[in-house]
C-alpha cells in the first residue's frame, strides 16, 4: 500500500507565559492512501493538534510531517494555503460556515479560492449538495439550517476540490447520532469512490468500528494502533 502520511518524531510545545506545555511528544505514525482512520484518546491528548499540523494549520516544534511526498513543515505560508485549499478538506466540530453566504456559496467558496470558474464550480457545488440531500436548501443561509444540515454543507465544501485527505475533528460532536452515521457514510463513500484518505478525530466509541484503523493518543503520544 502506498503511504500518504508519514509522521516522524512530531513534537508540539505550547508556551503560555513562562510555562511550556508539550501537547505532542514524539508522535510516530503512518497512514496509507485510501485509509479511513479514527483518532481517539482522552481530552487534551493532542488529537486536534495532530490534525492541525497534518492539515498545515499549525507548525510543529520538532519533527517531520510528510504528506503525499511533501514535507509540509518546509512550505511557506502561500504554499501552505494552496496545500490546505487543494489537498485537504477540513471538517470542524462547529461547522465553520460563512454566515452571510448561502449553502451553495459556502460550498463554492473553496473552489473559488482555487480559481475555478463560476459556472463549473456552481454546477459542482449543486451536485454535491444533491449528494447530501440538500437540494432544496442550496440558497439557505447557515442560520436557516439545522446542525446536521450545516455539517453536510461543510462536508460538501471540504469535498469540492477533490482533496486527497479529509481531516475531520469530531465531525459528529454537534449532531445527533442518526445524522452522525450519515456523515460516516459520506466519508466511506468518498474513500471507496475517489480513494480519498480520511483522518477522523472522534469521542464516539461506536464510530471507530466503521473505520479501517484506530490510532489512540494519550499525553501527546501514540499508545496503540488497532486495525
Amino acid at each position: 500500500m502506498e503511504q500518504l502520511i508519514v509522521v516522524e518524531d512530531l513534537w508540539k510545545t505550547y508556551r503560555v507565559g513562562d510555562i511550556e506545555f508539550p501537547a505532542l511528544r514524539g508522535v510516530e505514525t503512518r497512514v496509507n492512501k485510501g485509509e479511513f482512520v479514527a483518532i481517539v484518546g482522552p481530552s487534551g491528548s493532542g488529537k486536534s493538534t495532530l490534525l492541525h499540523i497534518v492539515g498545515g494549520l499549525d507548525s510543529p516544534t520538532r519533527g517531520r510531517v510528510i504528506v503525499n511526498d511533501v514535507d509540509i513543515s518546509k512550505l511557506n505560508s502561500d504554499k501552505l494555503a494552496e496545500y490546505r485549499n487543494r489537498d485537504i478538506g477540513f471538517i470542524f466540530q462547529f461547522f465553520n460556515l460563512i454566515p452571510y453566504l448561502s449553502a451553495v456559496e459556502n460550498v463554492e467558496l473553496s473552489s473559488a479560492i482555487a480559481n475555478v470558474n463560476r459556472k463549473t464550480r456552481r454546477a459542482k457545488a449543486i451536485k454535491l449538495l444533491e449528494v447530501f440531500n440538500l437540494t432544496d436548501k442550496t440558497s439557505k443561509k447557515p442560520t436557516e439550517l439545522s446542525g446536521g444540515e450545516q455539517q453536510r454543507v461543510a462536508i460538501a465544501r471540504a469535498l469540492i476540490n477533490d482533496p486527497i485527505l479529509i481531516l475531520a475533528d469530531e465531525p459528529t460532536g454537534n449532531i445527533d447520532s442518526e445524522t452522525g452515521y450519515g456523515v460516516i457514510e459520506a466519508f466511506r463513500k468518498s474513500v471507496e469512490n475517489f480513494g480519498t484518505t480520511v483522518l477522523m478525530v472522534t469521542h464516539d466509541i461506536e464510530l471507530p468500528k466503521f473505520c479501517d484503523r484506530t490510532i489512540m493518543l494519550k499525553d501527546g503520544k501514540v499508545i496503540e494502533e488497532v486495525a
Binding site: A81, R86, S110
Partner: peptide, 8 residues
C-alpha cells in the same frame, strides 16, 4: 475559516 480553506 477563509484561511483554513486556503485563502492566501
Amino acid at each position: 475559516i477563509l484561511k483554513a480553506i486556503g485563502m492566501k
